[in-house]
């Protein structure tokens, strides 16, 4: 993967948005990888959690907004629970998802969900899943 790095990219407005929305000190990550080791979905992600943190630090936010990984996060909070630096990694991912949704990037089309699935599934799943759709206005 080819990364373009410059002071402007690393300190971009998008990076500042992620820091503000998540309220986390992203730069204090020292890449130990405990978040990835504990992540139950890491094997299915295009970027694993510690890679996402590293890409954030390098200002590659646009790449992350297009990744599949941010949508595979279930917010089980394992990453943040285990982080030795006290970063709530799950909040960083939520910030990325929020930014993507605010830019109008959808992940799932609710119309495509089979009715029998919606009928059976507990409401909490459907509501949590809704947070992966662009806000309906």
């Amino acid at each position: 993967m080819l990364l373009k790095l410059s002071k402007d990219i690393v300190n971009s407005e998008l990076f500042r948005s992620v820091s503000e929305i998540s309220a986390q000190k992203i730069m204090s990550c020292y890449q130990c990888g405990k978040c990835t080791a504990g992540c139950p979905l890491a094997d299915k992600m295009d970027y694993v959690p510690n890679e996402m943190m590293r890409l954030c630090m390098l200002g590659q936010i646009e790449d992350l907004l297009d990744s599949k990984a941010i949508w595979l996060c279930t917010s089980c909070f394992q990453c943040g629970t285990r982080c030795p630096k006290g970063i709530e990694v799950h909040r960083v991912f939520e910030a990325l998802r929020s930014l993507a949704l605010r830019e109008g990037k959808n992940y799932t089309d609710i119309e495509e969900l089979p009715k029998e699935v919606l009928d059976e599934m507990p409401q909490q799943a459907i509501i949590a899943g809704y947070r992966k759709f662009e806000s309906l206005e």
Binding site: P40, L41, L72, T74, T108, V117, M121
Partner: peptide, 18 residues
């Protein structure tokens, strides 16, 4: 470990694996 939670809405096979 996480059961896959609400991925059963958006990525059913991923949550089934969990």
């Amino acid at each position: 470990e996480c059961c896959g939670a609400h991925l059963s809405v958006s990525d059913r096979s991923a949550s089934l694996d969990c």
